[in-house]
């Protein structure tokens, strides 16, 4: 049921909103350090799958296993702690805290995990340098461009040394040149740090940065490479 060597695996997930089935028997798995693209038409259940995998919402039925532990059986507090220590997130927009500077934003996951401020900001700056935004440390998110903000968000997702990054349309608001640069930097950093990436996108050019792709249709995830 759980594919060999996978870090995170979901089996037969179902989730219904009212009478709308968002997930209808979806299965998925990702290995350590692997970049998997989740594709599919609008409304097919991609975001719902990602939110279930990340423990943000609980499926009606089905199992999610992370590093040998059953996510759905965990108490809420434990799941939140796991999310903070092991997962990073990048969304389309609106994820940075507007009151904090960019470097404080990037340092946030470390601070939440108990790292002291100086050390956290030093690590944050290193990641910002890798994402080519280290000169924006003192700016607030409202004062940087969309593309720069997205790089700051990627730096933040990586700063807490997660095992998995969940990215839902991370380039959705960017032009293709900026979007590709963000993907290049994200996948390069993730691969070198052995971080798995679950990447939701409807853009093939973005998905082409992945190692493998999975298509969601009508709430069912289909792994084409393995299905043939």
């Amino acid at each position: 049921m759980i594919p060999d060597g996978s870090l995170l695996a979901a089996h037969d997930l179902r989730k219904t909103y009212g009478s709308t089935p968002a997930l209808d028997g979806a299965s998925f798995s990702v290995h350590p350090g692997e970049v998997v693209a989740v594709m599919g038409p609008s409304g097919s259940g991609k975001s719902t799958l990602l939110h279930c995998l990340a423990g943000i919402i609980t499926p009606d039925s089905g199992t999610i296993t992370y590093a040998g532990r059953e996510l759905s059986a965990m108490p809420d507090a434990e799941r939140s702690a796991l999310r903070r220590s092991d997962f990073g997130f990048v969304f389309q927009f609106g994820q940075l805290v507007p009151e904090l500077t960019c470097v404080e934003n990037v340092a946030l996951p470390l601070r939440l995990n108990g790292v002291r401020r100086k050390a956290a900001e030093r690590t944050a700056l290193e990641w910002m340098e890798r994402l080519e935004v280290d000169d924006l440390g003192a700016q607030r998110p409202g004062e940087v461009s969309g593309g720069q903000g997205q790089r700051v968000a990627v730096a933040r997702a990586l700063a807490g040394s997660p095992k998995v990054i969940f990215a839902d349309e991370p380039t959705g608001a960017l032009d293709s040149l900026n979007g590709e640069r963000v993907m290049e930097l994200l996948t390069e950093a993730a691969r070198s740090a052995n971080v798995a990436v679950v990447l939701v996108t409807h853009e093939a050019r973005v998905a082409a940065y992945s190692d493998r792709d999975v298509t969601v249709r009508d709430g069912r995830a289909r792994d084409l490479e393995h299905a043939v």
Binding site: E184, A204, R205, A207, A208, Y209, S210, D213, T215, L224, E225, V228
Partner: peptide
Amino acid sequence: LDAQRSAHLRMMRILTDRKR
């Protein structure tokens, strides 16, 4: 169509890698 889609994406992945 699915098989073709998969083949296209595979080629796109190779080109993306070459580009990088």
